[in-house]
């Protein structure tokens, strides 16, 4: 089941994404330093959570001295999409040994999920590919987030460099990678319209989850 060739193919395929994640990671480190976190604290979070968007949300809430329960709930809400991602990985991982399966699921991020799904449409793909991607992305994430904290004092205003736009850019790029068809247009519009509207009434990031579920439910109803 395990194929080193596939593992190395995953490592190679991840390089452009690892650079993107690295830039995002440096941004997160900068934000963390502004929130008063040190490099050890940042590294601990990156190694155990390893989920960029949710870490950015958490750092913002730490800066505002939000209660612990609210931060954990927001992180869960942002990461709830992993439930759906790991579910779609089931056909890829079903025949792997359980330890490898759990280990590769724990290292799954948006980028490695998207690349694995894309590859599995035209080639036999297993945990080796997913882990190959995750290993490079994880290393890039650790190095960049910790470096970002150290760089913290050097970049005074990230907005000048457009770095506040980085999160939007990452998610747009991932959407294009997944090659949406015209069947996706209406669900996307539903999510994109509901999300900002619901944000005015729902706390934390629940507006994102609810809006996304409404869009996906529309797609499901049509299936």
């Amino acid at each position: 089941m395990w194929s080193w060739a596939e593992f190395f193919e995953g490592m190679r395929a991840s390089i452009p994404f690892a650079i993107g994640a690295g830039v995002f990671g440096v941004t997160l480190g900068l934000a963390a330093s502004q929130a008063g976190l040190n490099a050890v604290e940042m590294g601990f979070m990156s190694a155990t959570v390893f989920a960029g968007a949710s870490q950015l949300v958490a750092v913002g809430m730490i800066e505002q001295a939000a209660p612990m329960g609210a931060i954990i709930a927001a992180v869960f809400a942002v990461n709830a999409r992993h439930i759906l991602m790991s579910a779609t990985l089931a056909p890829v991982l079903r025949n792997q040994n359980p330890v490898l399966r759990v280990w590769s699921l724990l290292w799954t991020v948006d980028e490695s999920w998207a690349l694995t799904m894309a590859r599995s449409k035209h080639a036999e793909t297993g945990a080796a590919y997913l882990l190959g991607l995750g290993s490079v992305l994880g290393a890039s994430w650790m190095i960049s987030t910790v470096s970002g904290v150290h760089l913290g004092d050097l970049v005074v205003s990230p907005e000048v460099f457009g770095l506040d736009f980085l999160g939007v850019s990452v998610f747009l790029g991932l959407l294009v990678l997944l090659r949406p068809t015209r069947h996706h247009i209406v669900p996307f519009v539903i999510a994109a319209v509901l999300s900002p509207l619901l944000a005015t009434v729902l706390p934390g990031s629940w507006s994102i989850i609810v809006a996304a579920c409404c869009g996906a439910a529309f797609a499901a109803a049509r299936a």
């Binding site: 999409r81 759906l84 998610f171 999510a191 994102i208 869009g215 996906a216 797609a219």
Partner: peptide, 23 residues
């Protein structure tokens, strides 16, 4: 098929929902 379609679409609509407020 319906649940499968939901699972396939949801991560992408999450991205759309995360992009939209910023735009």
């Amino acid at each position: 098929p319906k649940f499968r379609q939901f699972l396939e679409t949801a991560p992408q609509t999450v991205f759309a929902a995360m992009i939209a407020p910023a735009l």
